[in-house]
Computed example of a mutant assay.
Amino acid sequence: MNKDTNEGKWKQIKGEFKDQYGKITNDESKEAEGKKDKLIGEIQEKYGKTKDEIAEEIKSW
């Protein structure tokens, strides 16, 4: 496992927490932020890319 893979797993956990926190507090922006973090974490874990590389790819979508 490389550093990016481990960081990706952590981002998924953090994203899931933000998503759930947003649902509990009715904060839609926090919920969306959590979903984005979770997506970045999943991509990072699977492909071993850096957060910046993934953010650039997402922007180009």
Rank of each mutant, 00 (worst) to 15 (best):
N2S: 09
K3S: 12
D4Q: 14
D4N: 15
D4G: 05
N6R: 15
N6M: 15
N6F: 15
E7H: 10
E7L: 12
E7A: 08
G8I: 11
G8L: 08
G8Q: 11
G8K: 05
K9I: 14
W10A: 15
W10S: 15
K11G: 06
Q12H: 10
Q12S: 10
K14D: 15
K14I: 15
E16D: 12
F17E: 15
F17Y: 14
F17D: 13
D19A: 13
D19F: 13
Q20P: 07
Y21L: 13
K23D: 09
K23T: 06
K23G: 09
I24E: 15
I24Y: 14
T25R: 10
T25G: 12
T25L: 10
T25V: 10
N26H: 11
N26W: 08
D27Y: 05
D27H: 07
E28P: 00
S29L: 12
S29V: 06
S29M: 09
K30L: 14
E31R: 12
A32G: 04
E33K: 03
E33P: 03
G34S: 08
G34Y: 01
G34I: 02
G34Q: 02
K36P: 00
D37I: 03
D37L: 13
D37F: 11
D37K: 08
D37C: 10
K38F: 07
L39T: 07
I40Y: 00
I40P: 04
I40V: 11
G41N: 09
E42M: 14
E42R: 13
E42Y: 11
I43K: 05
I43R: 01
Q44H: 08
E45S: 08
E45Y: 12
K46A: 02
Y47P: 01
Y47V: 06
G48P: 01
T50Y: 04
K51V: 00
D52K: 00
D52F: 02
D52G: 00
D52P: 00
D52S: 02
E53I: 03
E53C: 04
E53N: 06
I54H: 01
A55W: 06
E57W: 12
E57G: 02
I58P: 01
K59Q: 01
S60T: 10
S60R: 05
S60M: 01
W61S: 03
W61L: 06
W61I: 01
W61E: 05
W61Q: 01
